[in-house]
Design a protein around this nucleic acid. Structure first.
Lengths: 168, 168
DNA sequence: TTTGAAATGGCTTTAAC
DNA sequence: GTTAAAGCCATTTCAAA
């Protein structure tokens, strides 16, 4: 992938509502050029969509936990992700190597809800659970590493000086 | 928080670039009313921002792993999150109860990069690591539970339908 | 094939009710 | 919360490199 595409992805990861005008200024291209690249990135699946970042505390879901699960009966078909998909408290489901089969990230209002959720998980997927409560989240869902270093591309307008330009 | 606000948050979590026009239609309010609610949600910190959802495979970061860390010397000050923040491969950092001190979610290009990252983590924060490789991700970062279901209230194009105006 | 510039329709945003 | 209006942006179209 090109450097400019990486810069576009990095910018939209930081602010998914950036206008094409601002985006064009940042990467040093015209609006239509940037727009075309974004469309291509979306079509190629590099950009899968856009989401609002929410405060789970404000949503009254202050308790985050990891729930490692493994089947109670390993001979059964392993369809835990589908069996658990209906539970909205489950934020993410990872199939993992190691002792456990899956690692779930869940968000609930408090211990009572966590207890009910764990019971629901166990009965829905016929699994055992091992839960690790999250005490705090120093950072989460940070933008991925972007190696793009935009060399000073000549532009017509000199009024704005986008980030990434060589220090002068 | 009100049901309409929850519906707005849910909609923007699913599609952070929804226009206020579409949003207004979904929740059954006027455009400016929805706009005002979104501004308030942003100011209150319920909506912390907007991000593009990216394909880590397309970004050449196909290997995801969880790295549980604990200090090599527990008598030292515990500032692992700050010491590790400069590593862009670290997607998230959770302070957890249980055997370990922190749980990191990391994304790298392959096993070689993972090995280098683990060495970097150990030396940067003076910690031991226990790594769990993610084999696949059935789902990730799903929208949180929203108790309000306002489906069916949306109008198509009728201009004179004062939704929710029982008081007037 | 990709980029740059202009025009139009739609959206965001503000003010008044 | 609603309506209306003004300004800005997204999207398309076309010309040029």
């Amino acid at each position: 992938m090109e450097d400019i595409d990486r810069a576009i992805v990095a910018a939209l990861t930081g602010d998914g509502r950036l206008s094409y005008t601002d985006l064009a200024e940042r990467v040093g291209l015209s609006v239509s050029a940037v727009h075309q690249r974004v469309r291509r990135l979306e079509q190629r699946g590099v950009i899968k969509g856009y989401s609002a970042r929410v405060s789970f505390e404000a949503l009254e879901l202050p308790l985050t936990a990891f729930v490692a699960i493994r089947p109670f009966d390993p001979s059964q078909p392993d369809d835990a992700p589908e069996r658990l998909a209906h539970l909205p408290e489950i934020d993410s489901c990872y199939s993992v190597a190691g002792e456990d089969f899956y690692l779930l990230l869940v968000r609930v209002a408090g211990p009572a809800d966590l207890e009910r959720l764990l019971q629901e998980i166990r009965t829905s997927a016929n699994v055992t659970t091992r839960t690790t409560v999250v005490l705090s989240t120093p950072y989460e869902n940070r933008p991925p590493k972007i190696s793009a270093e935009l060399s000073g591309r000549g532009r017509s307008r000199s009024a704005a000086e986008p980030a990434g330009s060589t220090a002068g």
